[in-house]
Design a protein around this nucleic acid. Structure first.
Lengths: 201, 201
DNA sequence: CCACTCATTGAGTATATACTCATTATATAT
DNA sequence: ATATATAATGAGTATATACTCAATGAGTGG
């Protein structure tokens, strides 16, 4: 038996967890750079581990992808909640939303463009992220509808319009801006001001 | 030399063109059903031609894809123009837009979801289709802005908001409706009425 | 009827890539 | 110090799929 009864304390177990972490972090970076269909060999090389090591940690590439997505969902979800919870107006909330999207833009771009070709589980990640924003959105927007400063339309439609507009710019970033410039940075304000103009009475 | 000086009249040339047409039409259908990454062997089998025949007509699968996309661009572009040219209001124009999207929904869905993984030329198809709608859109919307019935916002932003909303529903059809039901049929009216509410003063 | 051309064929080739597993190296237990 | 357990390795295997090309046979011109 191991010298330590609690998992993760021995040198070996630490080493193992480090390797796993390294693979996940590298995969995250490479997926963001090149998309999800990058070969396992590329990730192994970039992570500085052997090809076989990936499959010692993840039964299939699919499992690795799901782990990376799940990690991402947690990270961005937490960050969104953190920045959004104290927002008291639609404008502030959407500003924070854009800020988080800009932070995670490269990976988020891959998620929304390749979602339909990704494993089933990717939808949970996607849905979870949207739910977090939708939750905060509905709180502030409904208050403004009551106040009479925003048009009385179904909350989900107002929300989907916003998300549709932002996603449209992200998905067509090659059209709107140079390939490595942030679309959100460049157009965020214009998107926000247009949207605010549209929803106000 | 051939008995006919004008290309395409001999039995052989007709046969060749028929085979080519069959391949393109089959590819169009299969792409719409399963996406663009379907193997060449599947298309050959479905078209009832040999595997090699595809490469006798198209140097690479990429060329076939581009041909199919180009054909699609022409078809949908013509149809859009046809239905849009006599529209005298935003509402009518967008209704026709939705009608055409519904007609071509399956393939259009693949185009927008897989655009970023498709050959460069796919962007021309995509851009050409959008331009056709944008052209008609700007005519009617600018008149309504002048009349004072629509909010004074940049035309391209009004247009991108509409397209963003519609694409958002198309891209996330698995979330909004059962896999084989038309999203446009089910949500088209709601999208339209929401959008019209938003843009009006 | 014969020689020729060319559209079509499909078995074969090349390549990419997911995944395996016997071997190696190293930490751990006694 | 030695034996054991296990993390890591990378050459090897299996499979998928784009593309080739010599062979086939049907239309064409004489």
């Amino acid at each position: 038996m191991s010298g330590e009864s609690i998992m993760g304390e021995s040198t070996r177990q630490i080493q193992k967890l480090n390797t796993r972490k390294k693979i996940i972090e590298t995969a995250y970076r490479i997926f963001a750079e090149k998309g999800f269909s990058v070969p396992s060999s590329v990730i192994a090389k970039e992570a500085g581990v052997s090809h076989g090591s990936i499959f010692a940690h993840f039964p299939t590439m699919n499992d690795l992808t799901v782990s990376v997505l799940s990690d991402f969902g947690d990270k961005i979800g937490t960050r969104l909640h953190e920045l959004a919870k104290n927002c008291d107006s639609t404008e502030n909330l959407l500003k924070e939303h854009l800020k988080v999207l800009e932070e995670y833009e490269a990976f988020y771009f891959r998620l929304i463009t390749e979602k339909n070709m990704l494993p089933e589980e990717a939808r949970y990640t996607f849905a979870a992220v949207q739910s977090t924003v939708a939750f905060h959105f509905s709180i502030v927007i409904e208050r403004e509808i009551e106040k009479g400063t925003v048009k009385k339309l179904p909350t989900h439609m107002l929300y989907n319009t916003w998300l549709g507009l932002v996603h449209y710019y992200l998905m067509n970033k090659d059209f709107f801006s140079d390939s490595n410039e942030s679309v959100i940075k460049r157009y965020g304000e214009e998107l926000l001001s247009t949207y605010l103009e549209l929803i106000k009475i």
